[in-house]
Structure formats: structure tokens, C-alpha cells
Write a protein that binds this DNA or RNA. Structure first.
Lengths: 222, 222
DNA sequence: TAAATTGTGTTGTTTTTACAACATTTTGAG
DNA sequence: CTCAAAATGTTGTAAAAACAACACAATTTA
């Protein structure tokens, strides 16, 4: 089956064999699309009726408010999904931009079919629903964590909380972040030059060290 | 059945008749608890193995960081749930406080049972799972919206975006918000006195008017 | 009802941030 | 390799926010 190598690595289709996937592909009205780096996959201007599963490459979710300020919600990697917020929505108008950050292969699924279990042909649909629920719950946790980050009262605390989190995730005081400085500023919703100043100060104080996307936490403040 | 009047009004148990609920009660290991106003229902200090469904009264979810700053994540009303983030988590340590804002009745459910469909006795379990998924997706949308709110670059924009949203929800330029000013400041993650200053300024400019928790939007800025 | 607690608005001070402008460095495309 | 574009760090300035202290109003509770 087309692209099955990528499909079987995703969380939502883990444990599904190629035969069952064949049935699911029909049931979920699967389509594949390729995008070049920096190409817009979904935008608020062009409503989108499906749910997106990233199979290869990378993408970023951004929101732009009426003043033109960009909020980088998150970056997606293979196996991540986009459009979950609209799973149950009848008419689907995304308010976010999904943009490829690499050459990217995505799979589109019919959102109605996805959430509606069917007994006859694709017997594995109930597994998909449970996997889907797990992913949504994980996304939920991620959003709550980001909410707490943005609730910090100044840039220094945002940065330290973010770096601490990344350090815990990687299991080391040495780690790479998925953002460049401009993106990190958007992610933390602060001015880029202000972020640069804070990072420099933290380095001067010997709290952290960094080089491009590579960071090292030297002192863990209480 | 005990408290069925409240149960049938919730989203997750809508469409479930009393008989089926009886079976579900057993399957989900349901328990009921009463809390007085200001009593802590769940706290990070006391790990909690279940998922909470609010049946009567109200509650608020708060997060406190290491510096003691409080982030008011949201207020809950009857029918809302707490603990969804930990549905799939093995060992369950909540990092948030859930506090009753009124005299409150809650229902506790076994999280493992909730996400695991069973065929034999409680045939309605699949409906519950779909309802649950819908609630999680809605919570997801809520979190994304709040994220966008906190991404605004100053207090004025946060306030205006929040009030605009509330206005849209209520379908009128006159509406009540569920917070007092202190809570609103926590919700928007800004200093209370700074919020007060911004609100006064907006009133002076004739953009909004307000009295306690009642607001009126006079001019809708682009 | 009186007293205590909580909520609210105001003001002045200090700190932090956004913003703009700029010099370098790095990256990527042709 | 070369050139243009993008990323990065720095600085100064103006705006905004946090913070603290206070007065007074509203609400709760004993």
C-alpha cells in the first residue's frame, strides 16, 4: 500500500497491519498530498474539510491576530496531526496557518468518518478511535503546559521554564531546541530583541550557555 | 438512581437512560462527593486516581508555579470535567488545584474504565466514549483560544480580545463575565492594579462600560 | 449589626518590554 | 562561489507592566 512505511510509524495507525489499513484507507477517504518547504498547507482563507496527518517532513502551526502579530503555536513532526480542534465541527474554518517547514508528505482523512466507528469492513476502527483519543489528550496536556509558560510574568521566567522543560524532555542539561531565536520569540510571545537581551544576560550570569539551537543549563534556579 | 437528575443533564451522559446508567455506574466505579465553598477538591499534594465530573455547584482550576504566581486556568460549571489530561496517564499526579467555588457535588469515575469499551453489561459505553471525545476536543479548542489570548502583547489587547469573545458567546454587547476583577487579572495573567488601570482607561475612552461583573461594549475596535 | 475580610480603583516608583535602527554573521539559492 | 535574504545581537528610547501602598466600598460572617 502507498506510503504504508510512513503510516505504520504514526501513533494513530500503530498496531494496524497493511490489510486492515487498506480497508481503513477506503473508509476514511484517505488522500495524500506533497508540499514544498514554506508552502502553506492550510490557511484561514481556504477552508479545509479534512484532518491532516503528517507523514514525512515538518510543519508549523501559526496564528495571526488582527494586528498581524504571529503566535507560533507549535511545530509538528511526522506522526502529528492538525485539525483536531475541528473534528466535531460541522463547517470547518481554520483560524490557523499550517505551513511546511520541509518538503512534506501529508495524509488527509475525512473527519466525520474518523470519529464514527463502523463494524462491517474495517474492524480496526475502534482501535483508531482510542489512539485518536490518546493523541487528543496528549495535545491537551501540551496546550496546558504551554498555557502555564505564557502565564509567567516576565520573559526571563518564560525562557527558564521553557528551557527547563526541554531539558527534562531530553533527559540532559545539554539539548537542542526545535526553534531558531526568532521562532522562539514567537513561541514565547515576546519581542525577538528582548528575548535576545534576556538570553545574553542569562549567559553572562552563567545560568545557561548556548550556540544556535544548542543549549546547556549550568545552574538550575530554584 | 442517586443524583440521576443531575447526571442526565451532563454532556457526557446525555442520551443515557436510567437503566443503562445503572450498569455504567457499576462499570465506571462511580462515587459521589460533596464539597463546601472554597474547599479543595484536588490538589497536587494529594494524588487523585479518578476523573471528576461536576454535577452541582462550581469550581475553579488554578495552577501555582514555584514563585507562587497563580494562573486561573478556567472555571467549571455543572457538566464540566476535570482530570482529562491524565486519562491515559498511569500514575496520576495533578499539577493543578481544583477548588469548589460553591457548595458542590461531584462524581468520580475510574479513568481506566472510562476509556475502555466493554461489550457485556453496559452496552452504552461506546456512546460515552464518543461524548467524552467531543468534550476533550472542545476543551482543546478552549485551550487554543486561551493560548491566543495570552499571546497578545499587552494588557489592553488581552482585555479587548477577552471581552469581545464573551460578547460573541453571549450574543449581545451586554454580558456578564464569570470573574471578579482579581480573578480576571489571574485569568489574563496580568497584575490586578494594571488591569484596573487599563479598564478605567477603556471606560474613559468610551470603548466599554462596566459595573462589577457586568460589561457593555460600546465601540468595537477593528 | 458590627467587625473582619475581600474587592476595587488610584497613584507613584521601578523594572521590564516593545520598538526601531543598525552592524554582523549565517544561510540558502542560483 | 557569490550575492541576497534571513538570523542574530546590541543599543537607546518610549511605552507598558509590575509592584507596593493606600483609601474606600462591598461582602461575609460571627
Amino acid at each position: 500500500m502507498e506510503n504504508f512505511n510512513e503510516i505504520k510509524k504514526t501513533k494513530i495507525f500503530a498496531e494496524i497491519c497493511e490489510n486492515d489499513m487498506q480497508a481503513l484507507a477506503y473508509c476514511l477517504k484517505i488522500k495524500f498530498r506533497n508540499y514544498n518547504k514554506n508552502e502553506v498547507i492550510v490557511s484561514p482563507e481556504q477552508p479545509f474539510e479534512e484532518v491532516v496527518l503528517l507523514l514525512k517532513g515538518g510543519a508549523k502551526i501559526e496564528d495571526m491576530d488582527s494586528s498581524g502579530n504571529i503566535c507560533l503555536v507549535t511545530k509538528l513532526k511526522a506522526g502529528d496531526m492538525f485539525g483536531i480542534e475541528n473534528l466535531f465541527a460541522g463547517d470547518l474554518v481554520f483560524s490557523d496557518y499550517l505551513t511546511a517547514t520541509d518538503n512534506t508528505l501529508v495524509m488527509l482523512m475525512n473527519k466525520h468518518r474518523l470519529i464514527t466507528p463502523c463494524q462491517n469492513k474495517c474492524k480496526r476502527h475502534d482501535i483508531i478511535i482510542k489512539n485518536l483519543m490518546r493523541m487528543i489528550v496528549e495535545r491537551n496536556s501540551f496546550l496546558v503546559e504551554k498555557l502555564k509558560l505564557l502565564s509567567k510574568k516576565n520573559t526571563r521566567e518564560k525562557v527558564l521554564a521553557y528551557l527547563h522543560k526541554q531539558s527534562v524532555i531530553s533527559g540532559s542539561t545539554y539539548f537542542d531546541i526545535p526553534f531558531n531565536k526568532t521562532e522562539l520569540a514567537n513561541y514565547l510571545s515576546v519581542d525577538r530583541s528582548a528575548l535576545s537581551t534576556v538570553l545574553s544576560k542569562l549567559r553572562d550570569e552563567g545560568v545557561i550557555d548556548y550556540e544556535k539551537k544548542h543549549f546547556h543549563i549550568l545552574k538550575s534556579e530554584k
